[in-house]
């Protein structure tokens, strides 16, 4: 695994390497080289199984982290590739031509995070939601609890007490 990643870092500009397990490593690369790397890994290194791709919102840094996890079924190792893209007008190259299911992932990411994948099939069709006109829900600045309370008629009659506060009121209200 380590040797393989070392070899890989000669070919591609890998900035960070983390070995999570002996058969799982996380590498960070830049946005430009990712497509090249994906197709290299798939075609040459035998990472033929595309496990998943998803995004993580690091809102405090203003970036989205895209993670592609690839699996090599013969060597039984996993490689996760992390790319950081800017949160504003987030856009990423589409990888739907490499694996067929990627288009679905990208459709979901477009809907849930607002990351655009130009050229991906049906990417603008809504996937899970219907009639959504708020900010994409998986972004961290979307407050689901607030939205739920405003939209879905919270049931009245609920109310709670904090034990410490309640005891203060009951036992030593003036102190």
């Amino acid at each position: 695994m380590k040797k393989f990643i070392k070899d890989l870092s000669f070919r591609f500009n890998i900035t960070e390497i983390e070995y999570q397990r002996k058969n799982l490593a996380f590498v960070s690369v830049d946005k430009e080289s990712v497509m090249q790397m994906l197709s290299y890994l798939r075609d040459t290194e035998g990472f033929s199984h595309f496990v998943l791709m998803t995004a993580v919102d690091w809102i405090e840094d203003g970036i989205f982290q895209l993670t592609y996890i690839l699996n090599n079924p013969t060597k039984k190792i996993d490689l996760a590739i992390r790319i950081k893209i800017l949160r504003e007008n987030a856009e990423m190259y589409s990888a739907h031509h490499l694996w067929n299911q990627v288009a679905t992932y990208q459709r979901e990411l477009k809907e849930m995070f607002g990351i655009n994948f130009p050229g991906s099939p049906r990417v603008n069709e809504s996937f899970l939601l219907e009639g959504w006109d708020n900010i994409p829900p998986m972004r961290r600045d979307f407050d689901t609890k607030k939205y739920s309370e405003e939209t879905y008629f919270p049931r009245p009659g609920r109310g709670t007490n904090d034990p410490a506060q309640h005891m203060k009121i009951k036992l030593y209200p003036n102190e």
Partner: peptide, 24 residues
Amino acid sequence: AIDMVAIAGFDAKNGDSGLRPKVD
């Protein structure tokens, strides 16, 4: 699902807030 509510007959005292859980 749980609210802590004051119950008649269970006053706050040392080591007991007098509240009891109410389950929704």
